[in-house]
């Protein structure tokens, strides 16, 4: 697609079914309100791993936005466990679902861990709504190719295209 055409692309959020996983009442409401302002019509919400997975199993979710730190009292599972479930579990209805992780765990080590778990985009809290929108739009309109390398299955973690002279270790198809 030419750059000129890309400039005219639009995202119709009313067509997308979201799952927002956020234990904090206010922050969950903020995400929902922003999505509704963007004209999103279908927004499921969850506060813990179990509820999130139950919603995902229904197969209606197009895109998930999840916090890393969830309600620990329920099995001690967090947002990364949900990402891992989506990408790797046999019961996952859409293993290539775009996943945006929003978290106050914003230091580089966490960004790397999230990336290595298979998130599509990472939003550090506190965030600006424009920053959030940019990540959301990127995950929807510019999906990255998926790779399987060893135990990793998820979006290509290399964002820049660089010349690589070494052996190709990626598996092209599952």
């Amino acid at each position: 697609m030419s750059a000129d055409m890309a400039d005219h692309e639009r995202i119709d959020f009313s067509k997308i079914s979201f799952l927002v996983v956020e234990p904090n009442r206010l922050m969950g409401q903020m995400v929902r309100d922003v999505l509704q302002m963007l004209d999103a019509q279908y927004i499921d919400r969850a506060r813990d791993f179990e509820t999130a997975v139950n919603v995902l199993r229904m197969g209606r979710t197009d895109m998930m936005i999840t916090e890393w730190a969830l309600n620990q009292e329920k099995l001690g599972r967090d947002g990364m466990d949900i990402v891992h479930w989506v990408r790797n579990d046999g019961g996952s209805p859409n293993r290539m679902m775009p996943i945006v992780m929003m978290t106050a765990n914003s230091e580089e080590e966490y960004v790397c861990r999230a990336r290595d778990c298979g998130v599509s985009e990472f939003v550090a809290k506190p965030y600006t709504v424009n920053g959030f929108y940019t990540r959301l739009a990127s995950a929807i309109a510019r999906p990255r190719q998926f790779v399987r390398i060893g135990e990793y299955f998820g979006p290509d973690r290399r964002r820049r295209k660089v010349d690589y002279a070494g052996p190709e270790r990626r598996v092209e198809a599952v």
Partner: peptide, 18 residues
């Protein structure tokens, strides 16, 4: 990548620009 969501939501008429 799966183009399913892109096909469903990205267009040239309705919604928000990138």
């Amino acid at each position: 990548p799966s183009q399913e969501l892109r096909r469903k939501a990205v267009n040239f008429k309705k919604g928000f620009k990138l």
